[in-house]
Computed example of a mutant assay.
Amino acid sequence: MDSKDYVDRSLERALSQATPRALSRTQWREMAVEVSVRLCCALLLSIFAYAAILQWRVAPERLTVLLLALASSLTVGLSLFARIPEKRDWRPLSIVLSVGGTFYFLAIELAPGIRLIPEQVGASLCCAGILWQLFAKASLRRSFGILPANRGIVTRGAYRLVRHPIYLGYFITDIGFLSTNFGWRNLLVYAGLFALQIGRLLREERLLSQDPGYRGYQAIVRYRIIPGVF
């Protein structure tokens, strides 16, 4: 083997070894960002859950406070174990809508408010909303997250009825809590939440509509959240 062949083969071997390391470093950076975001979400959830449990321990009859902590834990907790999607919407507005619509509970007034309906009725609504969320999320399996993303088209279970059944579960739970813990601060928080959720939903559909499979699904399941209404 002459010196030129030796140099050429050495360069070829060096390049083939460098590429995997470069890809590996990129993957490690992405993994570090993903883990950091999920740990931050878990910390915020833990702070809120602790505050909610303290309020409930002071007044154990306030089941809606405990159920709100449970519902929030389901929303954020499941997203911590969601699979990483191939395509995600990282635009600033989508991030604001998603983060605001998910972590709205940090702005809720947990102290006792005005009871527009009995606590038991509000708790029943919260339970119904949580059970529906569980059914919808079980239909999704691990195709669940905070940012709008295409994690695969799901048409089974609750998704046979409406295109965004989890949002319906959120709405029922939120009405149950707000009706038994009413106040101007909570009213403003939930009004903002509903606006954020609608914007989040529409941007999610815009992303998913790029998939021909989802466009076919839209033709079959016409309504987004409430059959016959929206």
Score class of each variant (00 low, 15 high):
G145S: 03
S24I: 02
A195S: 11
D211A: 10
S24W: 09
T75H: 15
L208R: 05
S98D: 03
S16Y: 10
M31N: 14
V154D: 05
E204T: 06
Q27I: 04
S46P: 00
V189F: 04
G199L: 06
A195G: 07
L161S: 07
Q210L: 15
K87M: 05
I226T: 11
R83S: 12
F144I: 05
A111K: 10
W184E: 07
Y223S: 11
T180D: 02
A123W: 04
A111S: 13
T102N: 05
C127G: 08
I220F: 08
I130N: 04
L93A: 12
A149E: 01
N181L: 01
L63N: 00
I220H: 13
S73C: 07
G152V: 03
E119F: 00
S72L: 05
E61D: 11
G122V: 00
F81I: 12
Y170R: 02
S124N: 00
A195C: 10
S10V: 09
A128V: 07
R88D: 00
E12V: 08
L68I: 06
L80Y: 07
N181E: 09
A195L: 14
A71T: 07
L54A: 13
F230D: 03
G192M: 04
L78K: 11
Q27N: 14
A158R: 03
Y6L: 13
